[in-house]
Each structure stands twice: as C-alpha cells, then as structure tokens.
Design a binder for these strands. Sequence first.
DNA 1: CGCCGATTTGACTCAGATCAAGGTTTGTGG
DNA 2: CCACAAACCTTGATCTGAGTCAAATCGGCG
Lengths: 246, 246
Amino acid sequence: MSSIKRIDVEHLKVSCKECNLRELCFPHGMSDDELSNMDAVVEQPKALHKNDFLYRDGDKSQAIFAVRSGCVKTMTESANGDEQIVGFHLPGELLGLDGFADDSYTCNAVALETSSVCELPLDQLETLCHQVPGLQKQMRRIMGKEVSNDHKLLLLLGKMTAEERLASFLLSLSGRMEERHWKENEFNLSMPRQDIANYLGMAVETVSRLFATFQSEKIIDVDRRHITILDMHRLKVIVGECEPSK
Amino acid sequence: MSSIKRIDVEHLKVSCKECNLRELCFPHGMSDDELSNMDAVVEQPKALHKNDFLYRDGDKSQAIFAVRSGCVKTMTESANGDEQIVGFHLPGELLGLDGFADDSYTCNAVALETSSVCELPLDQLETLCHQVPGLQKQMRRIMGKEVSNDHKLLLLLGKMTAEERLASFLLSLSGRMEERHWKENEFNLSMPRQDIANYLGMAVETVSRLFATFQSEKIIDVDRRHITILDMHRLKVIVGECEPSK
DNA sequence: CGCCGATTTGACTCAGATCAAGGTTTGTGG
DNA sequence: CCACAAACCTTGATCTGAGTCAAATCGGCG
C-alpha cells in the first residue's frame, strides 16, 4: 500500500563535503579531494519510516550505512526467537559492519523513527580504498571502535547492576549528544522503554522504576521521552567514573 | 628471576605455509605466492607462560596476533575495577583488533596456559595489503567475524539463563574443536571455573553446580578440566538449537 | 469520546548471588 | 618423600535484586 505522506527529500541531498556530521562519520579527517572521491561513491540517502527494516539477518550484505538523521537500532536474534538489541545508531554513526563476516548481515537493522541513511556500496568501497590513501586505516579505526564499543556493552551486561546500567546508558547518550554539539544534558530518547530494557538486559518495569528513582533523587528529570540530566556528577558516581563528592 | 624450564622453541618455527592452522587463521584462502608474502611479514612466534600479559589496556597497538598454541583470554576493565572476559582465543584465532580504534588496545590479553602467538606488525600489514590482493577483504571478514561473535555474546549475557549460557559455551567450544579437527566431544578446558563464570556473567558456584547438574543428567561428563559431551543433542535443545526429540 | 499501546506502580516470587565450609589438587621447600 | 600452603573446586544454607504478574494510568489519535 502506498503511503499518503511523502518524506521530504530535499534536505537529504547533502554531499559529504557539506555534511555537518562529516567529522563524526566516515569522512573523518579527509582532505577536500578525498571527500570528492567519497561523494562520488556514496549513494543519496535512503529514507526510512519508523519500524522500517534497513536490512535483515541473513540478507546479502552489499553496503555499509551511515545514519544521516533519526535513529536506527540493530538487534540479533537467538535460536529460540528472542532478540537482543546490540546498538542504537545516532546520526554520523555507522552500521552494517557485521555483514563483513561472511557477506551477509548477522543482525536486523530497524529505524526507531523517521530516519535517513547514507549508503556506501561495498564493491565501490574496494575501489575507493585504492584512491584514498589512509581510507584503509580509517576503516580499521571504525571497526576497532565497533569492537571496543561492544566490549563495553559486554562489561555492562556481565557485571553491572540495573542501576549502573541505566546510568551508564544515559551517560553514553549524553556523551554522544555532546559529540554532535547538541545539548548534553537535555535530549529526547528515540526508543521506547521496552527497547531500553532489552538493550540493557532487564525488564521494562525495572527501567521505569529506575527512571522514577533517579527522578526522585533529582539526578534526572524525566518527562515521557524527554530527559534532562540534573546531576551529571552523581550519574558518574553511580557507574564508578567519579568519586562521590565529600 | 630466570626460570629453570625453557620453552621448546623448535616446534614454534613454522611458516604460515606449513602451518596446520593455515585455513583457520589469517592466511585463509591465500595462494602460495601470497603465503610467501605473509611469511615475510609475520614475526616468529612469541612464547608466553601462564598468566603472562600479551598486551594491556592502553598499550600502544603495534600488531595483531594469532594464537599458535595454548589459549589466550581478553578482558575489559571497568571504571570501578571489575573485569569482564570478552573472549577465549584458541589456536588459529586472532586478537588485538580492538587496538584499531585509536592506536592503543582497549583490553588486556593474558595467556591461560603456556602459549605461543604469531605477531603481525601493523605497519607491515599496510604494505602487505597492497601486495596481496584480497587481503583487505580478508581483514574485513575477520573483523566482521569478531563483531558478530561479540553480538552472540551480548545475546547470551542479555537474554539467556545460566543453564543456557553454560550449554552455549560448551557448544561453542565443541564447534571450535571440530574446526580444528580435534575431538568435538572430548576436550580440556584451559580456563579455571572462575574465568568461565566471569565470561558467562555468573558466579563460580553456579558454574560448578551446573556442571554437576549436567553430569547427573548424563549430558556431559566432567573430570576436573576434562569435559566429555555425552549428549550433544540435549545440549542443543537447551540453547534452543534443536527440538526436543520425540 | 473511546480505544490501544506505552508506561507506571504494587505485590509477590525466584534464579542465581552471596556467605560459609570443606575437599582436592598442585606446587614448594626441607 | 612428606608437610604445608595456595589455588581451585564443590556443596549447602540463606538472601536479594530484579523478574513476573496484575492492574491502573496516561497520551495519542481516529
């Protein structure tokens, strides 16, 4: 069925060169010349509606993607059907790297809200790596980041209490807001409680209760999906990043 | 203090070309010519004693490694000091990929027993990628594998019960034994219970009790570190990979 | 307004952690 | 070869963080 609404495509037509996410994304550190090569290869952004799949577990992997706007979650599926969200990808962040393993993706990627993603076809990536010196290293950097990011998440799931997990999640979001020069202590969650719970390996009810606790302790203010961090320091104390102040 | 024992170095001097782990390791699918290039770059194996660090969190990353013999664990450390083991690396498996993120390793790598590792210096990897067509793709394959492997572990830690985790762990080991053409239903664990527990996100006591349960149910036989899988099918049923028979 | 999905709140339960011994194996020095 | 210590592993008893179940409330939206 065709949708009545049409996503405005005008604002999507932005070259890497002009993209304000440039430094967070693939083009990080590239020269103007290199960016031109990049632009020649990157497809114009794909529009996604909420709940659209960008790719599915098992699909042949033909590209990696960069989120241009919105938010995309990736999740793995187990033999007995339950799912684990392994990442929420904000603008400038990449996804699809799991597809390198054996030419097909090993997880599902789903838009949490109306989003757009830039596409970098794999066959052209090959060529591009020869044209752009240092791109190979860039690729490695990006994959290394993915790996060490996953390791942090393993630590979270393996060793942290529910309270620490949620605090850690909020701090991670806050840090990424800051990277994007958005407000680091006030932002909207693009995912429902259910997805936060899944990602953090706990029950929705626990997420809800912890939000309530944090709020009553004046650490954050929660209004539906809108989060205001009132006491960053105390959040850091919870995850052990800071000593409790006197 | 100098040790009385000396590790026999003779058997370590093996070229990639002659290495029986060839197809599991970096050289997977390479031609003879390519293997020669590879051999010119790979350092002779480093010997490690039990509990030796191969590298530490924060060390400048200058190489990636392939386990030649023995077993090496990698673990991340949290702000408040506790550790999460993120992988046990068997012969033919690589480690050090986390170092790509920002030129320094983000986890610790420690030998679980007397081991040896081959070293592939990063600066030479660069050059090698130009000489060996398809090595770049190989690199991507390896990193993709690492990523999707981590995703499996996230699912394990986020969604599985203790019983499912241990069954899953045993099946994973068994599968890797098979890859190496070793017995898939009889092998020795190179790690203590404590490390298994840490890796699977549970208490040592739980690991111990589950081994006892599995044994009493005739699913496995446990003798200290020696494991015999008696009923592979039932293990698979536990993790949901198989339907319970009749 | 009324329905539906998302969220919150309360009461109860339980898987697995923690605490506490005790047993076994390995390594060391005399 | 034995005594002793240090790891390592197991087993039992108890406790608890967080899950489950149930129900109320909220927020959009047609």
